[in-house]
Design a protein around this nucleic acid. Structure first.
Length: 221
DNA sequence: GCGTAGATCGTCT
DNA sequence: GACGATCTACGCT
């Protein structure tokens, strides 16, 4: 792809988030997520997400209409970050969907680092293999420097610290696996709902940065 | 590569 | 007081 062919990079507008949560989840695969901080900026490409469908979803923090101090953001307007702590030590990043009063969101579970690799390595530890840097919700937050300080952050303002960008890359339907969500066995029937979306071959996407790719052809997997 | 155990503390009942 | 939208290290195959 030449510079001329490359589609423009645009930030994702609020209307994108104001849709059915499953659609937002599916469409977030392939989007770029940029997080800016004092340490620098990191850009990743989303490869794995989960949808949480509000009061009727027994695996969701807003199940049964539950309103607490923690999930307050989740009940708010779409296009904001919902960040919480699990197991007392790991952060999880979500994007609020649909609209105010719905309690629905998409959890970011996995991504591939596109820019800011040095900073990610500093945060995650130098010995971690590149493909393992962001392959879990807690690891992703650590790599991006996301903490509860970003809970409630608006993703759609011009100066957003946290934002999704669209550079024209999308996960082809054939490469997207639909699976049950992870770690929600307590949720009864909802535990088997196919609301986890995994882009199985993100490496096949055209590279956006970095010029020539020195890697040898894709070998083992 | 797979399975298991322990860490660790905020949140909710 | 119990539990959790997880991670890492470790042992085994």
């Amino acid at each position: 792809m030449t510079l001329r062919d490359r589609p423009p990079v645009v930030s994702v507008a609020r209307a994108f988030y104001q849709r059915a949560t499953e659609e937002v989840a599916r469409d977030l695969l392939g989007k770029l997520l940029v997080v800016r901080s004092e340490d620098g900026s990191v850009t990743v490409r989303v490869t794995e997400v989960e949808a949480y469908l509000g009061p009727s979803d027994a695996a969701c923090h807003t199940r049964g209409g539950l309103r607490t101090a923690r999930n307050r953001t989740m009940w708010g307007p779409a296009g904001h970050a919902y960040v919480y702590l699990v197991y007392g030590l790991h952060h999880c990043l979500n994007v609020v969907t649909v609209g105010e009063g719905r309690g629905e969101a998409v959890l970011l579970r996995g991504a591939r680092v596109e820019e800011g690799l040095e900073l990610v390595r500093r945060r995650r530890g130098g010995s971690v293999p590149k493909r393992r840097l962001c392959d879990g919700p807690g690891k992703l937050c650590q790599a991006l420097g996301v903490t509860r300080a970003l809970d409630g952050a608006d993703l759609c303002t011009a100066d957003a610290q946290l934002a999704f960008l669209d550079d024209g890359v999308a996960a082809p339907a054939l490469e997207v696996a639909t699976l049950p969500r992870v770690g929600v066995d307590y949720a009864g029937e909802a535990a088997s709902w196919q609301l986890r979306f995994l882009w199985r071959r993100p490496d096949s996407a055209p590279r956006v940065t970095g010029g020539t790719d020195p890697r040898s052809p894709e070998g083992r997997r």
